[in-house]
Design a protein around this nucleic acid. Structure first.
Lengths: 141, 141
DNA sequence: GTGCGTGCAAATGTTTTGCATTAGT
DNA sequence: ACTAATGCAAAACATTTGCACGCAC
């Protein structure tokens, strides 16, 4: 997943289809994001984009990722204060979070089933159900 | 719930029982936290503690809340980038999050049931399963 | 007096804003 | 030329760190 031959032309098309004007900065950020199948922080994305020479500012990385999130091109995952991960997998799924290492791992939607939801407050509808399973290294042997 | 007659003496005892040295700053912060049944941010807690005159610095609020969390006196709930809520309810439960207003509402553990958990990665154990149901105001009439 | 525990000023890290510049018509 | 969209420097905001002070022995 994720590793299926991304190139900048394809990123450009995906952005256009999503209704995002494909500027060079956005294509670079999208390429860094989609061609990695990992859960990256804004900082890591900027490092990848600017690896050779400065291409985008940090502000643009944040604004662009926010824009991508609005257009469902990426999903923000928050597990710790002051740490947001950007997940290029926008299909329905959940996450393991390794408390010790700070790493994030996908859980396919089919591997977890919620069979009883509480009644919703009036006049509201569910946008999304987020499940994070926090894991730590076994203490018991 | 939460409104059951908190006073500073009782906070002091609770801190002592939890193994936290009950300094005056900690009692003030604990009192602000426990006597409110709401989900407060660090900022809001500081405002309450310092309402009349300066009692604690922001750094102490953060460090103290972190300490309380370590001793299971409070639970950190994270829903948005750069926004942590402190929940004095440390029993097992989940949350509704109102995307529009930024408010948080408790879901009792019994109102939501997960009947299938994924296999855990080797050498790990579950610390906690966090479920956040993101709600938005109905668009449909 | 020594050493540990505590609180906070300052440093760091994260995210947002406002505006100068660019691109589109 | 006028207007809207874009990128980024600087500002705002959130959190952590390092160290000075006070308290217990």
């Amino acid at each position: 997943m994720g590793n299926d031959d991304w190139n900048k032309q394809r990123v450009l098309e995906v952005l256009r289809e999503a209704g995002v004007n494909p500027t060079s900065q956005r294509v670079e950020i999208g390429y860094a994001l989609f061609s990695s199948c990992a859960h990256l922080s804004a900082e890591e994305i900027m490092q990848r984009v600017n690896a050779d020479y400065p291409v985008v500012s940090k502000a643009t990385v944040y604004n662009t990722l926010g824009l991508f999130a609005d257009h469902s091109l990426v999903r923000e995952v928050i597990v710790e204060p002051g740490k947001v991960f950007y997940d290029p997998n926008v299909s329905l799924h959940h996450h393991f979070y390794y408390v010790d290492s700070g790493e994030l791992l996908d859980i396919p939607a089919s591997a977890l089933q919620i069979d009883k939801l509480p009644d919703l407050p009036l006049e509201t509808e569910v946008e999304r159900v987020e499940v994070v399973i926090r894991l730590r290294r076994c203490t018991a042997h």
